[in-house]
Nucleic acid binder design. Structure first.
Lengths: 114, 114
DNA sequence: CGGCATCCTGAACGATACTG
DNA sequence: CAGTATCGTTCAGGATGCCG
C-alpha cells in the first residue's frame, strides 16, 4: 500500500485519508443533519447536544475548506449564517449511512436500544 | 438521537459507536489484512509499516476483546501466535471496503495517485 | 518470536470568558 | 446571533528497553 502526502500530512492508506475528511466525533453528525436542509449555526448547535462553540466552528470551517459544505453569511443585525451541503458533500452521505447502519447492527448485537 | 452508555463510555449516535470499534489509525488496516488469511504477529507487523509493538498489541487485544479476531497461541519455542478474523469480524469488511473506495475517490479528486 | 512496562509528547478536545 | 480567544486537560500514540 503506497503511502502519500497531502497538505503536509502523511497517509498510509485510502481509509485513513477518508477518515481524515469526514471522521472525528462531529463531522458525520453535522453532515448528516445538513443532508437535506439548510441550517443556521444556532440550529445545528441546538440539534447537536454537548458540542461546544469552539468545536462546532472548527469542524464547520474544516468541512467548508474541504468543500463538503457551503457557508453563506447574511450581513444583517443580528448576524445570520446559513450552512448547506454541497454536491461534493452529498457523496459522503451514503458512506455515513453505511457506517450508521453497521453501528446500529453492532448496538443490537451488544444489547443496546430496546 | 438518543444517547447511551456502553462499557462506561457515553455515545451520542450509532456512527460514533461503530467508529469506536473499528476506527482509529490501525484497526481497519489490521482487519483488512486478516480478511482472507491467517497471519502471525510478525507478519502483520512487517506488513504494516510504522506501527509500533505497543500499538499493534493494543489494537489486536481490543479487536479480540470485541470479537473481531481470534488469537491462537502455540506453546512452542520460539513463540508462535496466529491471528484470524472471526465471523463477526467479517461483517466489518464490506464497511471497510465502502470507506476505502470512497477514500480512493476523494484521493482521485484531490489529484493523488497517478 | 511475540510480546509487556515505562515514560513522554503533541494534538485533539473541553471550559470559560468575551465580542461585533 | 455567531462566533473568537485563551487556557487547561485528556489521551492516542511514539520511543525505548526488557523478557520468557
Amino acid at each position: 500500500m503506497p503511502e502519500f502526502r497531502y497538505n503536509g500530512k502523511l497517509y498510509y492508506n485510502p481509509v485513513e485519508f477518508a477518515m481524515d475528511r469526514i471522521g472525528g466525533t462531529w463531522k458525520m453528525p453535522i453532515l448528516w443533519r445538513l443532508k437535506d436542509r439548510v441550517m443556521r449555526y444556532s440550529e445545528i448547535k441546538r440539534d447537536i447536544p454537548h458540542i461546544s462553540d469552539k468545536m462546532l466552528t472548527t469542524q464547520l470551517r474544516e468541512l467548508e475548506a474541504d468543500g463538503f459544505i457551503h457557508r453563506k453569511v447574511y450581513p444583517v443585525v443580528p448576524p445570520k449564517t446559513e450552512y448547506s451541503i454541497t454536491d461534493h458533500g452529498k457523496k459522503a452521505i451514503p458512506i455515513i449511512d453505511t457506517i450508521r447502519s453497521y453501528g446500529l447492527a453492532l448496538m443490537e448485537e451488544a444489547g443496546i436500544g430496546h
